[in-house]
Design a protein around this nucleic acid. Structure first.
Lengths: 337, 337
DNA sequence: ATGAAAGCGCTAACAG
DNA sequence: CTGTTAGCGCTTTCAT
């Protein structure tokens, strides 16, 4: 049984149904202009012969390709994150409901997605692969970029106002009475991480608080780096009373480190995260955090790309979504106050 | 600038290089039988015209499709796991090096991957989508299944001996002197989770230890469920001295719960996980665990599928990989002993 | 409402 | 080593 029988083509269906292949094509593509009787016969023939249109033939003949590509950076801290997972999941679900195929590619900046296989591509962030995005753009391939905004780049984007988000989070801490506020960064390869650092600094400056270099702890979004940051924080000559951490995952790990050292959260140190990962609801202390509308970002990006694919003339669109402060239990006024 | 200029085809290249389209095709496909001089001219023309072969045309004409599909269950606890991430990442990297396109589909058992778009599909586990796998099989689509083994199903598979793994883990605990050994399960929708439960029971029986129903804590791979399991464990009338947990992630969360209740690990309770997630190296106590060769599983599955795609007559192959006990610091003999 | 026919861009005999 | 030619299976005018 190497080859039970040749796979049926549109021609076989036409013969079986007693119509022309054009009519079969019409019912496959749901043209309204087919007599009910004929439609029925074709549908039956399709079923009977177990016919499935050849995708490559359809794409070749129509010149269109209803598949989109998703390019995700695969750097460790970034890839193994709630952010990446959620983006990926949301994009996949969005594609599903648009009935669009999803081609994935994880990149380290060296390899790139096979653009010939898709009608357009969405970049989940731009990290060392900006040149690739530009190349696609120059070739007229529809592109949408997520979580990366650059007015210099003529491309549609859906991003989050990370600067404002970080500033809001930091200001919240300040409003609660904290003056010694530390910061844990994400991987500064990403624009989002840089902007969050920026937002932290802006808030500190705005309230006349000094920005101490030793209060800026570099992380890379990994739990490991958060643990290291926690250790360094404990060794600080003047211990901060609050920390704003660039991701929930790192925030949770930081809290673990503090707890292990019998430092209570929020009693001794307050913590704010970034993401709104539901996992952080259930810990010893539910985490106050900046919520990112990740699903919305993914859906919007996919829809935007989809529209661009239908209408290549569509103007570009830079959408900026706002993060939102979610107040829970990990912040308290400093104990001295 | 709606259409700068028509995209160049193989014909344009042939004209530009002064050869036939066949010769162009040959150099594109790296046939050795092309005169160096001609190859050079074609390559130049390709570069000059920025020619990129039309994938759909290639696939239609050749009747082959060098893309593979990956279908992943999207159920929450299962999807947001180290297991899923690692599988996904490894499959993506394997595809990259084979220069094969990767089509992704997340399934809830209702929707399925567009098989027409690929040359074969790998299933990352079978959960509520077995019928889909069977259908593809019956249509002659090359399929490989990961982490699911069923002698009844005529399909190549790459799985892990979960029963043995769980048994080994449990026996290790027993050998260390534990008799009151509890178990936290994964989501029993998956075969792996069921087998791990089985392995736990086998080990207990083998050593004449009673299997207490209240020692079998049901989880679903999520941290939330692990937290709940931890809570229940604390309320047990006879507290176990050791726990075997079906995933590292759950094990870490369980440890957190224990710590929060001032129960020390491993001094008061020993814990063994399953996965070997590197994150578990850095906690307050590095986790003893059963390592799963996830990368190997993914690579093997992709390679197996790839071979099957080249040679549809290839016989099926059920590969079973072994997990391995990694001893670290989360297990100690029970304190009473 | 339907069909005939001309491609879509490429591969693969086949002949030379 | 190279070119001619016949498709691959479908969509899309263009008539009717």
């Amino acid at each position: 049984m190497t080859r039970p029988k040749k796979v049926n083509s549109i021609e076989d269906v036409a013969r079986e149904a007693g119509v022309s292949i054009t009519t079969v094509s019409r019912v496959i593509n749901k043209f309204p202009s087919v007599k009910d009787e004929n439609r029925r016969r074709v549908e039956e023939a399709v079923k009977r012969l177990n016919f499935r249109p050849n995708l490559s033939a359809q794409r070749l003949a129509s010149g269109s390709n209803n598949a989109i590509g998703l390019e995700i950076p695969r750097y460790e801290g970034i890839f193994y994150s709630f952010y990446a997972m959620e983006i990926f999941r949301s994009v996949a679900i969005a594609c599903d409901s648009l009935r669009v195929d999803l081609l994935m590619h994880l990149t380290d900046g060296k390899t790139e997605i096979n653009a010939a296989a898709v009608g357009g591509v969405v970049f989940a962030d731009i990290i060392r692969n900006r040149a690739h995005a530009e190349e696609l753009l120059s070739r007229g391939v529809p592109v949408v970029v997520m979580n990366y905004l650059d007015p210099q780049l003529e491309v549609s984007s859906v991003s989050i106002d990370n600067t404002k988000g970080a500033q809001t989070a930091t200001e919240y801490l300040i409003h609660m009475g904290h003056e010694k506020v530390a910061f844990v960064s994400g991987d500064l390869m990403s624009q989002a991480a840089i902007e969050r650092l920026e937002g932290y600094k802006l808030a500190m400056k705005k309230f006349g608080l000094s920005i101490r270099e030793d209060y800026i702890l570099k992380g890379d979004y990994s739990r490991k780096s958060a643990r290291a940051a926690g250790q360094r924080l404990l060794e600080l000559p003047v211990r901060p009373t609050a920390v704003f951490v660039s991701s929930d995952d790192m925030a949770m790990e930081l809290i673990n480190v503090l707890l292990e050292n019998t430092i209570r959260v929020p009693d001794d140190i307050s913590v704010v995260g970034f993401d709104d990962d539901p996992v952080c609801l259930y810990g010893p202390v539910s985490l106050t955090t900046m919520r990112q509308p990740l699903k919305e970002m993914a859906q919007t990006a996919v829809k935007e790309l989809y529209l661009k694919m239908q209408d290549p003339g569509r103007e570009i669109n830079r959408i900026v979504l706002s993060p939102e402060l979610i107040i829970r239990d990990s912040v308290k006024p400093p104990s001295g106050s």
